[in-house]
Structure formats: structure tokens, C-alpha cells
């Protein structure tokens, strides 16, 4: 999903990053980055290479992974639905036009911004470790997430609840909202990529990646105190949005959070 969105890096995200760069990162660090960018990237090249390989693997194996998944994977939608214990339905019962607009925007733009901005922000730090750890943590998230997608086949709540009136309303509003929000071309790409990955539900990568970013924000709160607040609010919103929009079950969120913790732990250990 990230691939499709990144391909269409929207003006909105770029603008947010620009504003964030000026206000949060600050002119001094940006000025230093002018001369420092190349050596810093060169030093972190191996980690970036791993991340890029994982992302490329994801995009080229997408279709065959789907087939493989149906052959060898466990179909667990009914388990996720049983253990969800009505949490998604409860969240969706608060459905309103304003919330749908908010959560749709956060789900699309907020998510991309949360992933992209810390890459820039940590690159602007003279300490290389946060950047390298972040890249390693992203790679771990993707690698484990994609492996689990092959091992477990599951559909999200929107495909399971046919009767839930609230869920239906949110879902339709969301998809129609996407068109208004992103322009039809972007929406097309986005929906297409969602269709291809609609059985990739367990765990929630939206959750694990945004929680990863929030955990890093906590660790770098001295350098970027305001970012901790922004990242936390965005991460929580993104996580709720996946359930509000009927894309993930509560269990997916739980495992997403676990994956985030694991990836940050390994990244910390790996880069002392």
C-alpha cells in the first residue's frame, strides 16, 4: 500500500514536510544538511539498501505472494472477527461526516507524512543513530509484516460485516471521500492497490509503522520535543482510523503494536 501512495507523493505531504522542516527541524540543522547530506547518506547506505530491497521484493512478489498465500496460508478471518469482540463495530457506531473526513485524511495523508517526515528529520541530526535505527525498524516492520501476510489470509471488517449499517455508511463515505480528496487518479491507484491487498489485513502495517515512528519520537524527544506530540496524536489517529474505516480488526492493531515494539527493540540492539 505504501508503494502506491509513495509513488504519488502528494503535494499535501510535501507541503507538510516543508512546514515541518522549517518549524521543527529548524534553519540551523537544515543549513548543516546542505553539506552533510551526502556523507550521512553514504554512511547509512547499507541500511537504506536493505530497506529498498525489502520494498522492491514487496512490489515484485505482490501477485505471486497472494497466490502463495492462498495455497499455504491459514484463513483466519473468523478468528479475528471472534476475538475482535465488537470493538470495530463500537468505533464505527460513532460514525459522522466530520469523523469520516478526519479519519480518511489521516489514513491517507497523515500516514505518509508520519512515515516520511522522521526520515528527513533524523537525517538532519548530527547523530546518525536515530536515522539508521529508523531505517532498520522500517525494514523489520515490512519484512515481518509481509511474511505474516503470506502465512495468514484474512479479510477486514468491511468485507465481513454485510449487515452492520454504520460500517457500510463509513465505508462508502470513505471511498467516495477519497475521490474528492485526492483527485480521481490518485484515488484510482489507491483503491487498486487496496483491492490487490485486501487479504493483507493481519497484522496492521499502518499501526506498526506509525507506532514505530511514535516510539522513535519518544526516544528523540530532546531533539524534537514538539514532534513527539504530533507523532503521538497522528499515530493514535491513524490506528483508530484503520478500525473506523473497517480496514482492520482490533487483533490486527494489537499485533501491529507488538510488531512496532519488536522492531524498535531489535533496531536499538542492532545499532548501539
Amino acid at each position: 500500500m505504501l508503494r502506491a501512495i509513495l509513488l504519488e507523493v502528494t503535494a499535501v505531504v510535501a507541503m507538510f514536510c516543508l512546514v515541518g522542516a522549517v518549524t521543527l527541524v529548524g534553519p540551523n540543522r537544515l543549513a548543516a544538511l546542505r553539506t552533510e547530506l551526502r556523507p550521512r547518506l553514504r554512511e547509512s547506505a547499507p541500511y537504506l539498501a536493505v530497506l529498498i530491497v525489502v520494498l522492491i521484493l514487496n512490489s515484485i512478489t505482490r501477485d505471486s505472494a497472494q497466490d502463495l498465500s492462498w495455497q499455504i496460508g491459514y484463513e483466519i478471518t473468523y478468528l479475528l472477527a471472534a476475538y475482535d469482540a465488537g470493538i470495530v463495530a463500537t468505533i464505527q457506531s460513532f460514525e459522522s461526516q466530520a469523523l469520516t473526513t478526519y479519519f480518511s485524511s489521516v489514513y491517507v495523508y497523515g500516514y505518509v507524512f508520519v512515515l516520511v517526515f522522521p526520515v528527513l528529520a533524523y537525517l538532519a541530526l548530527s547523530d546518525r543513530k536515530p536515522f539508521q535505527r529508523l531505517v532498520v525498524a522500517y525494514s523489520i516492520n515490512y519484512f515481518i509484516g509481509l511474511t505474516l501476510y503470506i502465512l495468514f489470509i484474512a479479510y477486514g471488517p468491511r468485507n465481513w460485516y454485510g449487515i452492520e449499517a454504520g460500517a457500510e455508511a463509513a465505508k462508502v463515505v470513505y471511498e467516495n471521500h477519497l475521490y474528492g480528496m485526492t483527485g480521481s487518479e490518485t484515488a484510482n491507484e489507491l483503491l487498486t492497490s487496496e483491492v490487490n491487498s485486501r487479504t493483507n489485513v493481519f497484522p496492521s502495517l499502518h499501526t506498526s509503522l506509525s507506532a514505530t515512528v511514535a516510539l522513535f519520537a519518544y526516544k528523540t524527544r530532546e531533539a524534537y520535543p514538539i514532534w513527539l506530540g504530533i507523532a503521538t496524536v497522528l499515530a493514535v489517529s491513524i490506528i483508530i482510523s484503520t478500525m473506523y474505516l473497517g480496514i482492520h480488526w482490533a487483533v490486527d492493531i494489537l499485533f501491529g503494536l507488538g510488531l512496532a515494539g519488536l522492531s524498535v527493540y531489535i533496531a536499538d540492539r542492532f545499532i548501539e
Binding site: 475521490y179 484510482n188 483503491l191 487496496e194 485486501r198
Partner: peptide, 26 residues
């Protein structure tokens, strides 16, 4: 080829002239 809900969005956004097959009652 999208989903039963996205086909509605495609028609609404002017990217499709008609839906074919099952479609969301929305």
C-alpha cells in the same frame, strides 16, 4: 476491476461510464 463500493466512486468521479456486475446499494 475494483470493489463493489469503489465502482460507485469511479462512476461518481466520472472515471467510469457504468458499473458492471454487483454493486453496493450506495
Amino acid at each position: 476491476a475494483v470493489s463493489t463500493t469503489a465502482v460507485v466512486g469511479l462512476v461518481e468521479a466520472g472515471n467510469a461510464d457504468a458499473t458492471v456486475g454487483p454493486v453496493d446499494t450506495g
